[in-house]
């Protein structure tokens, strides 16, 4: 690291910080400022510049841990990556401008200084971006796991009758999981009737219908009966308009009707008790 730059940043630290915060505030868009109070903005900005400076003074590991903390905080606050990136560029600009203004850089050294500054800032930029994407990836994978856990529960409601309520969009991966859970559940619970409830499925297109038909077919092969419940009017419309043939599958409009039909298939019925005086 060039001694010149190092000394300059060290000596003019507070001035750089002030200019930087000023410039960044002008740059930050409405949305960002509104969501964040002035103190938080200032302290975070302070931390940001602190972090950049620590790159000069601290050891590699300390810098990295600071970077991790900062990135996590910023992601939590919802600062866009573009803004942070802009911040780094701005910092570079201010330092360079300062160096030139103070006449510390003459024509001969100019290229060397620019090169040094660049080789100092670029890895940091990479690290910030890297940090961001790592945290994003972590969030995405956590959400994916959560989604998988919610994906396809099979509930044995009555003897020999099970229900699988589906909520949310069905894609191919999920459909596969649904089919596996459904079949394994049918075999494990020894059920005769399975009700698939699609009240919570927002859209039924040809692909979803195809998966449901496949699942129903597979359920029939393992020796149970499959019913489709919770068909909303708009779903019925789409199904018919798309020309999907669901004739092979028994369909009911609500889970209640489905359970009644299921009881009928298993030759049982719900009887109201006479009140005992």
């Amino acid at each position: 690291m060039n001694k010149l730059i190092y000394n300059y940043i060290k000596e003019n630290r507070s001035r750089i910080l002030d200019t930087w915060i000023q410039n960044m505030r002008n740059k930050a868009d409405e949305r960002l400022i509104k969501g964040v109070s002035t103190e938080v903005f200032e302290s975070t900005s302070d931390e940001f510049v602190e972090m950049i400076i620590s790159r000069l003074t601290e050891k590699e590991e300390e810098f990295l841990s600071l970077l991790t903390d900062f990135a996590e905080k910023v992601v939590r606050l919802g600062w866009p990556l573009v803004f942070v990136n802009e911040g780094l560029k701005e910092f570079e600009k201010i330092v360079y401008g300062g160096l030139v203004d103070q006449g510390l850089v003459n024509q001969d050294k100019l290229l060397e200084v620019v090169g040094d500054l660049d080789s100092f800032m670029t890895p940091m930029q990479n690290e910030v971006v890297n940090m961001y994407s790592q945290i994003w990836e972590k969030t995405v994978s956590l959400q994916k796991i959560a989604l998988q856990e919610l994906s396809a529960p099979l509930i044995p409601v009555l003897d020999r009758i099970t229900v699988m309520p589906l909520v949310g969009t069905i894609d191919t991966e999920r459909a596969k999981q649904i089919m596996e859970n459904l079949l394994n559940g049918v075999v494990n619970h020894r059920s005769e009737v399975v009700l698939i409830d699609i009240t919570g499925v927002p859209v039924v297109d040809t692909m979803v219908a195809h998966h449901i038909i496949q699942a129903a077919e597979a359920v029939r092969l393992v020796g149970a009966h499959c019913m489709l419940c919770g068909i909303r009017p708009e779903i019925a419309q789409t199904i018919v308009n798309l020309g999907i043939n669901l004739n092979e599958i028994t369909t009911k409009n609500s889970l209640q009707k489905g359970i009644e039909a299921a009881l009928e298939i298993t030759s049982r019925q719900i009887v109201e008790m006479e009140e005992v005086e």
Binding site: M179, E180, L183, V186, V187, A218, V219, L221, V222
Partner: peptide, 13 residues
Amino acid sequence: ITGIQPAVAITLI
């Protein structure tokens, strides 16, 4: 036909 395993059913489908 009885006792078709889930995996077999999936394969058939």
